[in-house]
Amino acid sequence: MFQQLFTSLYQALLGTPAPSSLIPVYQKSIFPGVGLSTFFAVALGMALVYYVVLNRLMTTALFKTSHWLLFVLLTALASAVLAYSQAHSVVTESLNSSGVALEGIEQSAYNRYVLGFLCVNALFGALFFVFWSFVVKSFSTSARTTPVRWPN
């Protein structure tokens, strides 16, 4: 289910993975792996850090919308880094195991796709963080109304 979901999401914005030899690697491993990690580990993790750790367990002054926006950016950045490192390591491992190397046009297609992938994942990371914000913020003390009071 997750494999289908994330593959559809990424491909809707990025198109079919390139070079075509890497399509199975992306669809079976990279998209679901990165998608799930971004959704749960990065976005949920950052939301928990922001709402529960910083604005409940600790006494900080990071309750403002500007601070929340900063966390959106950090989540996007972390998601981009995650996308790049995951894609790079999975593709490298796949190529090594098959004994094939990317050259010329294939290499530049790969580079362009990975760049697009990390950008799209940054966007997804930010969106997932916004989603988790509305789920988690009721557990917060000082950021219960950040970024908006609704639905509390």
Partner: peptide, 8 residues
């Protein structure tokens, strides 16, 4: 002014 208590 944009803290929870103030908004509430």
């Amino acid at each position: 002014m944009d803290a929870v208590f103030a908004k509430t």
